[in-house]
Design a protein around this nucleic acid. Structure first.
Lengths: 234, 234
DNA sequence: TTCCGCTATCTGGTATACCAGATGCCAGAC
DNA sequence: GTCTGGCATCTGGTATACCAGATAGCGGAA
C-alpha cells in the first residue's frame, strides 16, 4: 500500500492570498471610479477570518506591488503608471531575451519543437478566433521560452512582473493587426532557436517584446487623450 | 521658515526589518554549524517587541527569499544552493546587459563620465589596496550602470537578487587575479557606452557577468571538494 | 456667516491569549 | 533491551483586545 504525503503546509493564509489576489486582479483599476481603498476589518469579515492572517496576506501583496499600505491612512490598490508598465516590459524583455539565449544552448529538440506546435495552433486560430484566446496562447508561448531556458529564476521573475499586466491588458492590448505580425515574429524566434543561434534568438525576442513596449506607450497615450475630460487625478 | 514634512510612515516594523535583515546577512551561513533555525518568541524578546510585528517582518523576509517558514516546524534561514546562486547571476546579467543597452541611448555624457571616474579609481587602487574595498567599488560600478539606464525597475530587481550574494561573497569571490581582468572589462564597457553602441555595451556587460558565473561555479565546486569530509548534510 | 478647536470615530499598529500540529521523552509491555 | 503509545512541551497559526494617529463633523466664538 502506498500513500501520498499530505501537504500540511497549506494554511488559511494561502487561501486568503488566493482570494485576495484574484479579487484584486479582477478589479477594473481603470474604471471611472473604482474603489481603490480596502478596509481590513471589512475584508476580514467578508472572508470570515480574523485580521491577523489577513494582514499577513496584505503585507505579502504589498511586497508584490499590488497594494500599498499607508499607516493609519488605509490600504490601497495600486494603479500602475505608464512609466511603471513600460519599465516592466523592458525588464520582461531583458529576462526573456536571456532565456532565449540559454534555450538555444540548453533546450532539447523536443522542447523547441513544442514551441513550433504552439505557434502552429496560433496561425490556424488566427483566421477567425477571438483575440482573448490568442492572447492566452501568446502568453503561454512566451512563458514556454522562459521554461525551456532551464533557468527557473528567469521564469519566476518574469511571472512576478506579468501579474501587473493583467489589469492593463484590457486597456492596452489585443489589436487585430498585431496578431499577424506577432505570429511572424514568433516563427522567427523559433527558427533562431532551431538553428541554435542564441544571439539571434535573443535579439528577436527582445525586439519582439520591445514592439509591445512601443505599442503600449502609443495606446496608453491615446487613451489618456480620450480621458482628458476626467482630469489629471489619475 | 521652512519645515520638512515628518515621515510618519516609518513604523516599528521597519526598524525590526532592518535589524533582522542585517542580522541574517551577517550570518555565516556556510560555517560548520550555523544556527539556521530561528524562534519567534526568542527573537521578539531580544528585540523587545511582540510577535505580531515581528511575524510581519519574517513574512516579508520570506518573500525575499532569505527565510523559509514551515508551519509548526520552525523558521529557517535559507542556504542557497549553487544552482540558485548561478541562476541569480544569470538573471543579474540579463538585467544589467539590458541596462547597458538603454544607458547607451539614454544616459547623459556626464553619467557615462562618472563611470570612467569610478573605474579610474579602481585602477589606481588595484596596485596595493585590499580586495574588500575593490569589491565594494566593483559593486557600485555595476549598480551605477543600472542607475544610468534610467529604468528604475532594473535596478530594483537586480538589488533584490544581489542581497543573496552577500552570504556567498566570502565563499566565492575576491581573487587577486580577477581584479586585473575585471578592470580591463570595465574599461571595455565604458568605451562601448561612450561610443553609444548599445549592442556592444550589452554584450560586454553580459559576458563580464557571465565570467563571474563561471568563476563562482568553479570556486564553489572546489569548496565542495574541500568540505567533503563534513558530509552531505548541507 | 466664517473660522477654529474639540471630540467621536475610523484605521492600521501592536500586544496578548489561546489553538492545534509537531516533537521528543519516558513509562510500560513484550 | 527494544518497541510502542501517550503525554508534556515547543512552535507557528489564529483570534481578540487595546493603542494611537488620522479624519471629519459639529458647535461655539468672533
Amino acid at each position: 500500500m502506498k500513500l501520498q504525503p499530505i501537504d500540511t503546509s497549506v494554511t488559511l493564509k494561502d487561501h486568503i492570498y488566493e482570494r485576495m489576489r484574484s479579487a484584486i486582479l479582477g478589479m477594473d483599476l481603470y474604471a471611472d471610479d473604482p474603489d481603490l481603498r480596502l478596509d481590513e476589518r471589512s475584508l476580514a469579515e467578508q472572508l470570515g477570518v480574523s485580521r491577523t492572517p489577513l494582514r499577513e496576506v496584505l503585507i505579502r501583496l504589498e511586497q508584490e506591488g499590488l497594494l500599498v499600505i499607508k499607516p493609519r491612512r488605509g490600504i490601497f490598490v495600486v494603479r500602475k503608471t505608464l512609466t511603471e508598465i513600460l519599465e516592466m516590459i523592458v525588464a520582461w524583455a531583458a529576462l526573456e531575451s536571456m532565456a532565449a539565449r540559454l534555450a538555444a544552448e540548453a533546450a532539447s529538440d523536443d522542447e523547441i519543437a513544442s514551441l513550433r506546435k504552439m505557434a502552429a495552433k496560433n496561425s490556424v486560430t488566427k483566421a477567425g478566433a477571438d483575440i482573448a484566446e490568442y492572447s492566452d496562447d501568446n502568453i503561454r508561448f512566451h512563458q514556454r521560452i522562459l521554461d525551456i531556458s532551464h533557468c527557473k529564476l528567469l521564469g519566476v521573475l518574469a511571472e512576478g512582473l506579468f501579474v501587473h499586466m493583467h489589469a492593463v491588458r484590457r486597456r492596452a492590448m489585443g489589436e487585430e493587426d498585431r496578431v499577424a505580425k506577432s505570429v511572424v515574429d514568433h516563427m522567427g524566434i523559433i527558427e533562431a532557436l532551431e538553428a541554435r543561434d542564441g544571439a539571434l534568438a535573443s535579439d528577436r525576442v527582445r525586439d519582439h517584446t520591445m514592439l509591445l513596449h512601443d505599442h503600449v506607450r502609443q495606446i496608453w497615450r491615446a487613451a489618456e487623450q480620450t480621458d482628458i475630460s476626467k482630469g489629471e487625478a489619475r
